[in-house]
Amino acid sequence: MSDTASSRLLSGRSLAMAGGLVVVGLLPLAAGASPYMLGLLISSLILAGLGLSWALLGNLGGMVSFGHAAFFGVGSYASALLAAKLGVPVLLAIPLAGGVATLSSLAMLPALRLSGPYFALAILAYAQIFRILATEASWLTGGAAGLQRFPGLPTVFGFNFAERHGSYVLVLGMVVLCALIYVVIRRSYVGIALRAIAESEDATRVVGVNSTLLKTWMLMLSAFIAGMFGALNAHIIGFLEPDYAFSGIWSVMPIIGAVFGGYRSVIGPVFGAVVIYMFDQVIAKSLIPVGHQILLGIVLAGMVLLAPNGLAGLVGRIFSRTGGKHHARA
């Protein structure tokens, strides 16, 4: 950690992490996973990206969000509508949708004055506003009947993103990119300041940190990332309705994934989301077809009890035990 003193933002370690993510991520392709399996993996990576955006706000910004479905839904509708009504190329519509989600997050700025559970409750209520908007503004969104006719992912230089393998690679690349952005921020002055804010906002202000501004940036960035993954998901699924795009699932699953994987690390939310989603879909569903989510709850409770820092903490603990990592003086 002492190399925070150096201004090298992308250390060898974080690049190795990104490389490792790509290699692990490409394994299913190399192993010739079935289209069904790839479909599940794509969904799990969408949740992983959403989990990263949630953890960015939760871990760095110190704000627990129960409303990421709002950003996800706004992103998915924005991208679908931009592509369908204005003819914006899909690969451009996706980042633009992230921008629209960022704009929607500005409506939440008053909630930044709240902290802890009050913030969480405010954002929970806030998420409902957009579901209602999407339902009522039927002239634009198609209302409760949904939105069906919008373009899917394109083919670029002969590489078909609409096909399962292509979508998978695109989503994987986005997850890795967001993980790198997260790492760069965490290692910067801003990242150190954000961690300090979580401990004592007054003491952080005294050293010259505009904490309100930094928290605003984190909220906007988190909304941007969540919106982009919502957009990706929309173009892959090809169908939107308010109850789906703004479903509480999009608020809850990233939290479960991040807590399971270890929300304090960068890699935890990614692996947590993938492991939890695949477990739910492949194992839990085959054991209990209806109400399989109950197994998720049991697994999560077990994880919190046995390894409060999640998968990432568990792996770290095993490594420090075998590697004989030197311990700081108590």
């Binding site: 950690m1 925070t4 002055y189 150190i192 401990e199 007054d202 050293v207 010259g208």
Partner: peptide, 26 residues
Amino acid sequence: VVMVPEGRLVFRDMTVEENLCLGAYP
């Protein structure tokens, strides 16, 4: 104009050097 707050207010979950580097935030 820089204040050293009372009660030895340090950021406990951060390393000593991270605490110090934060001082150079301006």
